[in-house]
Design a protein around this nucleic acid. Sequence first.
DNA 1: CTCAAAAAATAAACATCGTTCAGTAAATTA
DNA 2: TAATTTACTGAACGATGTTTATTTTTTGAG
Lengths: 200, 200
Amino acid sequence: MGVKERKERQKTEMREAILSAALKLFSDEGYDNVTMRKIADKIEYSVGTIYLYFKDKGEIFYELHNRGFAEFYKRQLSVQHIKDPIERLKAHGEAYIQFAMEYPEYYDVMFISRTPAKEIKKSEHWEEGERTYEILKLNIKQAMEAGYFKDVDLEVAAFSLWSFVHGISALFVRERLSMLPTEFLKPLINRALEFLSRAY
Amino acid sequence: MGVKERKERQKTEMREAILSAALKLFSDEGYDNVTMRKIADKIEYSVGTIYLYFKDKGEIFYELHNRGFAEFYKRQLSVQHIKDPIERLKAHGEAYIQFAMEYPEYYDVMFISRTPAKEIKKSEHWEEGERTYEILKLNIKQAMEAGYFKDVDLEVAAFSLWSFVHGISALFVRERLSMLPTEFLKPLINRALEFLSRAY
DNA sequence: CTCAAAAAATAAACATCGTTCAGTAAATTA
DNA sequence: TAATTTACTGAACGATGTTTATTTTTTGAG
């Protein structure tokens, strides 16, 4: 009698369907322009049904946000195998910005949004943010040991590099770079990363 | 018979009251969380009255956006008298960040807030933003002519420097640096500017 | 297989949003 | 003072997120 199991499975399948529809919509149209009714249309259920699976619109976003942070951290790690410290730092920056461009809604709540949903404030997930900052400092430190960043304070360098990639990400996410055609944007960002990594 | 003049004055006073209330609210709560009714409450008029002075919510934002840029542009110019190109560039960055720290509401509206895109996209006032970008490029170009930034593309350098100061400003304005005590923040920012200007 | 209880889904209703508009009050003019 | 113009209001509209009462579907004991 696997009734309970099937119900469980169906419940998670429905949650996944909602999350998947919401992610696409959020990413295409932005959180505020996505209505619960649009999500409901997309999964071909009525509006009220969504509320059987999620407390409110914010909880849908929160769940996606969690997955975003997990993905963010994973991407930071994915670069750690690179041997050359400067190359690794550059790849680190690339991974950071790529995440922001791929999941602007996530990036927004993580680093830009003024009032993150209540759930997010008290969340343990900012620690994941600090862990990525530690990775950055580690990478800079190893670059120093390899002879780069002479006479530079570690904290100052970390703050500077973070500000730099955040600046690019924030301008992109909040659409202050829309005057640049997309095909020019990515190369420009890459050259900007080179600009910085070649400086030291 | 200065009736017309007084009416004119009253009209602009009302516009100013609306703009001032809106700026504070936008900055405190974010564009989307500010309702027309909140603005109306703050100036102690009914909702409909606002629409006698502004076409819609977006136009209020648009006007604030314009004013921010005017003040911003003035500050950028104030640095142009400095002779040494690298010192001037550094002062330029300082002026930029100082504006953000002094008028976080304006900086927010100008470079961070989600914009009602229609108004601003086609606006001639982004040109004021582009004018400041031209100043930056001019300053970089003169630094190049003085022997700095060798083998660097002008556009890439401008984009990089802008991203850098925007990153710092955005992190400050959106309170992602609140873990740093204020007395450490300014020196840190100064050292970050040095970090970059010393790189080339 | 039947059918009442439980679960799932829905449609309608609610409060609030930006915006509009018919109507009222105030100021101006003749 | 009376008429007209201007300033303002408050109710209404369609759309939003969310809640609720109701209907439909699924379940499992007799």
